[in-house]
Every structure is written in C-alpha cells, then in structure tokens.
Design a protein around this nucleic acid. Structure first.
Lengths: 140, 140
DNA sequence: GTGCTTGCAAATCGTTTGCAATAGC
DNA sequence: GCTATTGCAAACGATTTGCAAGCAC
C-alpha cells in the first residue's frame, strides 16, 4: 500500500521507477521528518545494503527537479527533503534544530509579484526561532 | 559618510568595531548584490591585502547572529548575505541565478503562527522561477 | 597584561564527478 | 544489445577548527 503509493507518485511525476527510487519515495512519504540525504541513506541501507549514497543524492535531486519532492534550504548547515509538495511553510528551531510544518496563511503560497517581472515557480516560507519546548527550557 | 554609516550600524547592533568589520559592513551596505563570503573577500582584499577569508566568515556570521545582516539560504549552492535587514522577500532565477529583492505582501513578514507554539524571530520568503530576461531568451 | 580579534594552515565534511558494472526492455 | 540506472572511489570545494600572532584598552 505504501509501496503502491510511492510507485504511483513516481509515475505521476513522470519518473521511471526502480527499486531504489520507489524505496526512497516511500521513505519520504512515510517519514515526514524532512530527512537529509544521509538520513535517507542510513535508513534505507538496512533494507537495501547495496544502496549507494550517490544514488540517494541523484534520486532526491531528480525528485526535486520533477516536483515530486521539495528541497528545503532553511538550515544553512544541511539540505532537507520533503515528500509533501502541497504548499506549506516550515519552522526551524534555532536551538534544537527541529523542523516543523506550518500551514501557510491564506494565499501566501501563490503570491503574485508586481508587474510580472518574474515567473514564480516555487515559493518557500521559512520561519526561524524557538519552539515551545526550547522556550521552556532554561537557557543553555 | 558610508564609513560613518557602517560604523553606526555596528554600534547599533552592539558589535565591537574594527577595521575589518567596518569594511565588511560598509561593503554590505553599499553593494546590495547579496554577496557570498568569497565575493566580499575578493572585493575587500584589494583595499585590505592582509584580510583573511576566515575573518570574512567569522564576521558575516557575527553580523547575522546580531541581526545586523541576513544570511540567505535561497540557493542551495551558496550562502548569500544581505545588509538590508528590513523585512523583504527574495527571488532567484533558476537559469541565471541572479537574486532580486522583492517587496513582501502586506504583513507577510510578521505572520503569526497558530497557538503560539513557536516564537518566530526570523522570516524568510523565497521565490524561485525565471526572471524576465531569461523568460525571453530561447531555451538553452 | 588581559582579552578580543585576526589570519594562516590544516582538517573536515557534504556533494559532485568519472567511469565501470548492472539491470531492464 | 542498447539505454538508463546504479554504485564505487576519487576529486572537489565550501566551511570550520586550532592555534599563534597582533591589537586595544
């Protein structure tokens, strides 16, 4: 069922499926943790021992190019990926580093710019600050 | 006058001034090109031949931590810096790579999140797509 | 003199590249 | 058999770290 869904997703975006691609897409769809390349690699290496990190890099980039995944650059330290491509914003806590999905305020995902000087294909809204639990903890 | 302004800016953010810090802040304030560390380094090396790239790294990070500059992560390939800290959005052309400032739609810079689960300190709005001139050029 | 700032050199680490092996139609 | 995909190993390059020298009050 999740396999099915991952496969369908790939096909829906015109991406030729393979064992590795299906596994990676499935991971994205079932783990909404905004994983990094390394996290995907480490997790999938258990079930696909021959998996190469190069393949994870290539595949996630392929997904992003086809619009099947989002490449998040909210954290300058690392690039994260999101299998949920429906417009939404992201919040990152500057202390614990956790990423959370945030609903976009009405219409913010489709903001149009003045005078059609640009053709916007992607919009990213990033919030940074302190999450609830880090606010409550004593300052480090 | 520009020196004055850079110095004042540093003081205003509680940053202890130095020749290097003033020069880097002045560069940010007079070149609104969203430069990378390397661009700042190369440009200032002419007037301050002993300048180290490490110092540029340290200084720009210091500025960002004090809110005296913005660290832009719109381009996953490189980090850019912006001396204009007044809330505004950024657009990057996926073909020519140029960054442009964009006015934020009303109130978008101060969006408040549901239920105060987060304490937002910074908001980044990034648009990606094609700029006017790249739209008009024939596909590569 | 003490503490902060600078800058060199080396280390680190995420990412890309080249290319040979493999899988799928 | 041909083409696309995978994966290893090496290369690359941006950023960080350690530490010694320099500067300022």
């Amino acid at each position: 069922m999740t396999d099915r869904s991952a496969l369908d997703t790939l096909l829906g975006y015109g991406i030729h499926p393979s064992v590795q691609r299906i596994a990676i897409m499935d991971y994205l769809l079932t783990h909404r943790t905004h994983p990094t390349v390394d996290e995907v690699y480490v997790a999938l290496n258990k079930e696909i021992p021959t998996l190469s990190k190069t393949t994870v890099y290539n595949t996630l980039r392929l997904f992003a190019e086809h619009g099947a995944a989002l490449m998040l650059t909210i954290d300058e330290k690392k690039i994260c990926f999101d299998g949920v491509v429906k417009p939404h914003a992201h919040f990152m806590c500057r202390r614990c580093g956790r990423l959370k999905d945030v609903e976009l305020p009405e219409g913010a995902g489709t903001l149009q710019l003045d005078g059609a000087d640009f053709m916007v294909e992607e919009t990213h809204v990033y919030y940074k600050g302190l999450c609830r639990s880090c606010q409550e903890q004593p300052q480090a």
